[in-house]
């Protein structure tokens, strides 16, 4: 699992690559929280387009970061057009509260 984070204006861009399961999500969670809690950004943009696997642990990870953004009066949005991943996001009901865009550029333009 590979994680890349960068700040763009008021947004923390989080790019995830590889397999997101319970094992990898524990480490990813700690890293995102450590960065976001001290960052001046209040929105999180999660780019899931380079994930090769995600199970419901990924849903838990996203739900938790959605709350972290809310606590800073910000939003969390997702960039993803991978059918498998979108299917799990949809099944979990997350897409009723979180906006989904096909790619990072569109997501950033619409936040």
């Amino acid at each position: 699992m590979f994680l890349e984070m960068e700040e763009l204006e008021n947004n923390l861009i989080v790019k995830l690559k590889g397999e997101l399961d319970h094992h990898s999500s524990e480490d990813i969670r700690k890293k995102i929280d450590a960065y976001f809690s001290t960052s001046s950004t209040s929105n999180i943009v999660m780019d899931l387009n380079e994930l090769t696997f995600m199970d419901s642990s990924g849903v838990g990870l996203i739900m938790g970061r959605y709350r972290s953004a809310q606590e800073k009066n910000g939003y969390l949005i997702i960039a993803c057009d991978k059918e498998r991943i979108v299917r799990i996001l949809d099944m979990s009901g997350l897409l009723k509260i979180i906006k989904l865009y096909p790619n990072l550029d569109t997501a950033i333009r619409n936040i």
């Binding site: 969670r29 419901s56 099944m91």
Partner: peptide
């Protein structure tokens, strides 16, 4: 769906629903 015995662990409660689907 959404039931979790460990809400403090950020579990989604979707495990069995995913298996069933």
């Amino acid at each position: 769906p959404f039931y979790t015995s460990k809400p403090d662990l950020e579990r989604s409660g979707m495990g069995f629903t995913v298996m069933e689907t």
